[in-house]
Design a protein around this nucleic acid. Structure first.
Lengths: 117, 117
DNA sequence: TGCACATTTGGTCGTTTTACCATACGTCAA
DNA sequence: TTGACGTATGGTAAAACGACCAAATGTGCA
């Protein structure tokens, strides 16, 4: 792996990492409906303003959102909206995992007691 | 936000977080080419076997990969291959960020010294 | 049975992350 | 200009993460 490839992987991982926190993912999803000011985001989750601000900074540094200061308020919006197109597949992973769990449960189901499957 | 919605967000964030590490993202990309045993993954990166194993465990727990033990070896494969369809958009984020940087540089460019853009 | 190999697990330690508090900053209105 | 408001930043403590080492587990072969 070249240095360049390595840097690319790190950059991409960083974006995924930025979205890999419940609060930040929630924020990104909120922004899918259009830009929001910090206050709008903050009042919808149970967190300190400074915490919200820091999460938004993480998203901004990752390049996921961009900022627009207008008057006293700061508006954030998705920079590259396709970022949320990913969610259906993420949900598919959850489904698949749930499915595995179900299958696991099936194996344990006392009815039938089938050994060979 | 209901408890259920909260749990869903957390589950999704957990998947993104799992992919949000350079080594794990690299592994996922490797597995896009088909299943690989731990040894194959380990020999391609400069890391301890135990480190590789632990990263794979994280991916497995997130539901991103699944395991198949055959003989002495353990094979991992993507459970939901669409997980990597996301990458073009992630790269678009990088591009957009790079673009911003370029624009930023443009503003600083001494040639012309244009104030109003 | 016992060894060798492939992988996992447990432990430790330094680093990073995160939430909260207090405080600073910038903008608008009076 | 001053105060109030919206947001960002700095500091701190607790928790989570990540890398490495050592040791355990499981599997196939001699």
């Amino acid at each position: 792996m070249t240095e360049k490839e390595k840097a690319l992987i790190e950059a991409k991982a960083n974006i995924l990492k930025a979205l890999g926190h419940p609060t930040r993912l929630w924020m990104a999803e909120q922004l899918a409906g259009g830009e929001k000011c910090v206050c709008e985001l903050a009042e919808n989750i149970n967190a300190d303003f400074s915490t919200v601000s820091k999460h938004l900074t993480v998203l901004k540094q990752a390049g996921v959102v961009e900022v627009d200061k207008r008057g006293k308020q700061v508006y954030y919006r998705l920079k590259v909206p396709c970022i949320l197109n990913f969610m259906p597949c993420v949900e598919a992973v959850l489904q698949a995992t749930a499915q595995s769990h179900i299958e696991l449960m099936d194996q344990k189901r006392p009815i039938g007691q089938i050994d060979a499957v």
